[in-house]
Design a protein around this nucleic acid. Structure first.
Length: 1126
RNA sequence: GCCCAGAUGGUGGAAUCGGUAGACACGCAGGACUUAAAAUCCUGUGGCUUCACGGCUGUGCGGGUUCAAGUCCCGCUCUGGGUACCA
């Protein structure tokens, strides 16, 4: 650098270092927890300190939030603007596995680098409040929250989380029948039962209620990473980090019952000042759908629960228990060659009686219909009272013939049953008499104790035993359009209902769909597959037989894992029906179902019995009513949101504060927190496949084994905003005083990639913490602004190879620096960079071994020297024999914009920009690039302009001749004041609306105008410095002190806009003819439209444009425009 | 497929209420200062047309509403993001 003869020129490097030091020493940005000032909390999403360091994309949001923070301080707010590190995470651990270095060391180094980079940009963070999720003093409270979740259950009645101790009290006094909780399926028990349970049994039951619970769940298992991943950590069937394949696996895992909060998480969105797209993303993720459940009874004979592979007539069961368990209210018609129509349609009289008997309506007695007793099927039976009711004397024998009533009665009597018979006529004409007879029998008889098999089962159990199939639908109006049912291949009923004839095909299908990985299934959405089970269900209204299929388009995990297929009005059902040639009955008018399904929720119902002629909306309502009154199902709301899996089989995370006693999980006592992450010899799973923590020596809780999984990455980041309020509190997570003062976050700035993960989990924890009284608010982030990604340039080469007859495209990125190495012919540099790169970018490519000499390959590619490459490949005898390159036999080197990352070698370090142009230029340039929310590719085009602007601003304060600092105390002119106040207005409005790019423009305009006015007056320039200081704090602080101030500019009051200076008394009206502006005329602003009209008409230019015609109309908009209509 | 956002000069973008489209900057061209360079300053810069004054045209495409449309309405096309057999 040249020696600096003139001390007054703009030496940004030294200026910036000086003021950064000054701010640090004076703790200029320290926020006070005890202030009379109104508070303002501005938060950035804290970074994960990766080894790559910050790139120019990271500071974008930080700069914006820093501008707001500094602005709010000028406006007289007590501003909390902290920063910290989300320092647990996979990359540090992966690095540790490779190098053996402890992740804490790498993390510490990375944090140091991040801090240095952040300091270089001159952020106004209050560093005294820094938090790190990896600090034991921090994760102490992450573990504490886990304990609170473990000790809580969700009460649906109060709609909040409550202490588990209250629940235990309830169990002790009244059992669980009156408890309305969000929980897993569990048995119904009384207070006495609870008392009789062992400790182990009690704990197992409680685990079904706890908000943090252990259960066997299907998880996303990533073998490469050796851990499970949350749904939002999996993209397109591969891990978001690293891009490794992910498979489904059943594992015992810690989970959090976030689904309990689904409705509150959904409702809360309406109260937030977030972009619609992020709210929409969360709504989609929560996935509320309202509809109804609906039960279809099974029509075909059930295979017995046991005895698969027995002779096919095994269903003529001799074992009462067996068929008992599988019958109940289904229309269980054990008829071989019995007339089909009899099977389909219950007689009218049977329906009448059943309507009166079902659901314990009479004397609270449970009746079952169409039940096998011995060799017979009874119309209705109560086991409790050993009572058989027959209508019209018909009992169907299994021998396919009818024997006399007497004979049947005899047999039934022998079995201990009493038989009452009614004729159809009696039912029709004297139902009351019929029911009275039944009642009087019951009241005189003595109930027997049912056998275990006869004992009523809970609804869940019934479903399991397959008397009926429950589906969930949002379109109950289309019930008459159902032409088949589809079950997920994993549906528990499949094995039971599949007929012998279909067994082989169904089992094959299940095997195939099981083995298809998630990834394959996704890649292959278009392929329609399924299999007929051979079984039929009965349509609840028409009583028609409906074939039951299985298909993998139905998901086991959603709804009931079964759908009623309405092909005419659901595109997936339509595709399935077309493929398997199933009927497609239309029930809603509209569309052309020969071409495609008509999914729209509008039109009139047709072919739908009691729904005919109704609009879809009305039909849905009526259908639900009918379904509910008939007891076939009820209105129901489903959420897509799944409970969050909380355990990771990794080392570098918070230990879960749980220990096991006789296999039962208990949380540690709060006084024993934090449970520190133990030392291990290796950061790998044990030989037996246990997580790395299992390697820890002498690591136990009073002799009991600790849980060995750790918390996921999102645990620490779900509450960090609270710790900033009170970062050094050793006794509490956050003091009530601190959280009551700071409240929730006024402005949260971060990337939209966290739309569902972090933002949803943090909201969930906040709601929970509110339920337990730790925080006073329901939503943590009032306003959210998403900064767009700053993208880098990715050079990509496409290579096409023939392997095993497949034409596959390999993709490898060439970074810009690699590209320049190639261009420069520096083969050594090329090889080095390529070696680094091939490893990462080829991991997900199965033909990697075929391209075994990639360096020259790529070098040639960049030169598009196809012939040369081919020659070279032949000379090496390379296995890539058939090479198709591009579409026109050329290598393609394509420039794309994409994520800035180490992987693509396109990271731009902000430090370099700071050295070259200064932090103030970097800050202003990043703001000037465009709207904060937009994604934009990084380019330094234009950075000169911003730098030039700062130099111009500097010169306003300096004599151009000798570069001395000069400031005039003369009063400002009207023109100068107008420029200043225009800028005050614009700068203020733009910060409030986050339009930082336009306010940079406004500063440029201001400086340009002041330069033209040769203004160097204190009255103008000092307020201007305050306006500019949030954007370019260093240069403004320097000039502020040169102006003679001794205190930081940060303490200065924001200038007040005075509209008087902008008042104009004249306006240069554009005069347009038929909307086309031709010339301008100056008129006083207070001139009335009529007068303006006269003046315009009198103008000679107007006369010229009128061409002798009379104007039809003249529109004068005061202070805007004049339009003459000819 | 569905949901959301967007499309304006050679480039990034502005026009926040329906009222002069292209602010501000980059780039480019020309010029001044300088032995030269850097730095700085001045002029021009959507397209077509004209010596010029000017004229025509112009905000992804096709319609419409209006005195007036980048802006509002209807129908498309394309791009980016989210999501994906969610019944």
């Amino acid at each position: 650098m040249l020696p600096q003869f003139n001390m007054a020129s703009y030496h940004f490097n030294s200026i910036e270092k000086n003021w950064q030091k000054f701010w640090a020493e004076h703790q200029t940005f320290k926020a006070d927890n005890n202030s009379e000032l109104p508070k303002y909390y501005v938060l950035d999403m804290f970074p994960y300190p990766s080894g790559a360091g910050l790139h120019v994309g990271h500071p974008l949001g930080y700069i914006a939030s820093d501008i707001v923070s500094r602005y709010k301080r000028h406006k007289g707010f007590n501003v909390l603007h902290p920063m910290g590190y989300d320092s647990f995470g996979l990359p540090a651990e992966q690095y540790a596995i490779q190098t053996g270095q402890h992740p804490a060391i790498t993390t510490e180094e990375n944090i140091k680098r991040y801090r240095q980079q952040l300091d270089n940009i001159g952020f106004s963070f209050d560093w005294s409040r820094e938090v790190r999720t990896t600090d034991a003093q921090y994760y102490h409270w992450t573990q504490w929250i886990f304990i609170q979740l473990f000790n809580a259950w969700y009460n649906k009645v109060s709609d909040k989380a409550e202490p588990i101790s209250d629940l235990i009290k309830k169990f002790e006094t009244e059992g669980n029948s009156n408890v309305n909780a969000v929980c897993d399926e569990t048995i119904v028990f009384s207070a006495n039962d609870w008392d009789a349970f062992s400790e182990k049994e009690q704990q197992a039951i409680l685990l079904n209620y706890r908000l943090a619970y252990l259960s066997d769940t299907m998880v996303n298992w990533c073998p490469e990473l050796g851990t499970v991943l949350a749904n939002d950590e999996v993209k397109d069937g591969v891990s978001e980090r690293g891009g490794y394949p992910v498979e489904r696996k059943l594992m015992s895992q810690w989970s959090l019952r976030i689904a309990a909060y689904a409705e509150r998480l959904l409702q809360g969105l309406d109260t937030l000042d977030w972009t619609e797209s992020i709210k929409e993303a969360q709504r989609n993720w929560i996935g509320k759908s309202e509809g109804t459940s609906l039960t279809f009874s099974l029509a075909s004979p059930l295979n017995p629960l046991h005895g698969r592979g027995e002779p096919s007539d095994v269903w003529m069961v001799e074992e009462e228990e067996l068929w008992y368990a599988t019958s109940d209210k289904s229309k269980y018609r054990l008829i071989k060659d019995f007339a089909l129509e009899n099977r389909r349609n219950a007689t009218k009289e049977e329906v009448i009686i059943w309507e009166a008997l079902r659901n314990n309506q009479i004397e609270n007695v449970k009746f079952r219909r169409q039940h096998i007793i011995d060799k017979f099927i009874a119309d209705f039976v109560s086991f409790e009272y050993k009572l058989v009711i027959e209508i019209d004397g018909l009992i169907h024998s299994l021998e396919d013939n009818i024997i006399s009533d007497e004979a049947r009665t005899l047999v039934l009597n022998e079995l201990g049953f009493n038989v009452i018979r009614f004729t159809n006529e009696e039912v029709n004409s004297n139902l009351d008499g019929v029911l009275g007879k039944i009642k009087s029998y019951i009241s005189s008889a003595v109930p027997s104790t049912p056998s275990p098999a006869e004992k009523g089962m809970g609804d869940e159990a019934k479903k399991r035993h397959g008397e009926s199939i429950e589906v969930f639908t949002t379109r109950p109006d289309t019930i008459f359009g159902v032409s088949f049912l589809t079950l997920a291949p994993e549906h528990e009923l499949v094995a039971q209902i599949t007929t012998d004839a279909c067994k082989v095909a169904v089992e094959n299908y299940i095997t195939i769909s099981k083995n298809r990985s998630e990834r394959d299934r996704m890649a292959d959405v278009k392929t329609i597959s399924g299999e007929f089970t051979g079984a039929y269900a009965v349509h609840p209204f028409t009583k028609a037989l409906i074939p039951i299929w299985i298909g993998d388009y139905v998901l086991a995990g959603y709804g009931t894992g079964a759908v009623m297929a309405v092909p005419a009005h659901d595109s997936r059902d339509y595709a399935f029906a077309k493929h398997f040639n199933l009927p497609i009955p239309q029930v809603v008018e509209g569309g052309d179902i020969n071409v495609e399904s008509y999914d729209a929720k509008e039109g009139l119902l047709i072919n739908s019995d009691f729904l005919n002629g109704l609009e879809v909306k009305a039909a849905i309502k009526k259908a639900i009513e009918k379904i509910e009154t008939e007891g076939l199902g009820k209105g129901k709301t489903n959420y897509r949101l799944r409970n969050a899996i909380f355990g990771r089989q990794r080392y570098w995370g918070e230990p879960i504060p749980v220990y096991y006693k006789e296999g039962v999980p208990y949380v540690v006592e709060e006084k024993d927190l934090p449970i520190a992450l133990p030392e291990v010899d290796k950061f790998l799973p044990t030989e037996t496949g246990e997580p790395p923590l299992a390697r820890a020596q002498n690591w136990n809780y009073n002799g009991h084994a600790f849980e060995t999984t750790t918390m996921p990455g999102w645990a620490g980041s779900s509450w960090y905003y609270l710790r900033y309020m009170d970062p050094n509190n050793a006794n509490e997570m956050v003091s009530a005083a601190a959280v009551n003062y700071w409240q929730n976050i006024d402005l949260y700035v971060g990337g939209s990639e966290h739309a569902v993960g972090h933002l949803l989990y943090a909201r969930f924890w906040c709601k929970f913490l509110k339920d337990i009284g730790t925080v006073p608010f329901e939503e943590p982030f009032k306003k959210l602004v998403n900064q767009g990604m700053i993208q880098g340039t990715i050079c990509t080469t496409y290579i096409y190879t023939y392997q095993n007859g497949l034409n596959e495209r390999l993709k490898c990125a060439i970074s810009s620096d690699l590209h320049s190495q190639i261009k420069a012919g520096n083969s050594e540099g090329v090889f080095k960079l390529m070696t680094e790169q091939i490893g990462s970018s080829f991991t997900d490519c199965q033909y990697v071994n075929e391209v075994n000499v990639p360096f020259e390959f790529f070098a040639a590619a960049a030169f598009e020297d196809f012939e040369g490459l081919k020659k070279w490949l032949n000379s090496t005898g390379n296995s890539v024999t058939h090479l198709i390159v591009g579409t026109d036999s050329k290598f393609q080197v394509k420039m794309e914009t994409g994520k800035m990352s180490k992987r693509w070698h396109n990271v731009v370090n902000p430090d370099d920009i700071c050295t070259q142009y200064g932090a103030d230029t970097l800050r202003m340039y990043e703001m000037f690039l465009g709207p904060l929310q937009d994604a934009k590719p990084w380019s330094t085009q234009g950075i000169e302009g911003v730098h030039r602007f700062l130099k111009k601003a500097w010169r306003l304060f300096h004599n151009t001749a000798n570069e001395d600092f000069v400031l005039s105390n003369e009063p400002a002119t009207k023109a100068e004041l107008k420029t200043l106040h225009k800028t005050i207005k614009k700068a203020t409005e733009d910060i409030e609306s986050f339009s930082f790019n336009t306010s940079v423009s406004a500063f440029m305009v201001c400086v340009n105008e002041l330069q033209d006015l040769k203004c160097n007056k204190r009255e103008i320039l000092e307020p201007f410095l305050i306006l500019l200081s949030p954007y370019a704090p260093h240069i403004c602080e320097e000039l502020w002190h040169l102006c003679g101030h001794t205190e930081s500019i940060e303490k200065a009051k924001w200038p007040v806009f005075n509209p008087e200076f902008l008042v104009e008394n004249e306006f240069n009206y554009p005069i347009s003819f038929n909307g086309k502006v031709r010339f301008n005329l100056n008129f006083a602003l207070d001139m009335e439209p009529a007068a303006v009209e006269q003046a315009v008409l009198a103008d000679e230019q107007t006369i010229k444009y009128l061409e002798g015609k009379t104007p039809k109309k003249i529109i004068v908009v005061k202070g805007r425009i004049v339009n003459v209509v000819i």
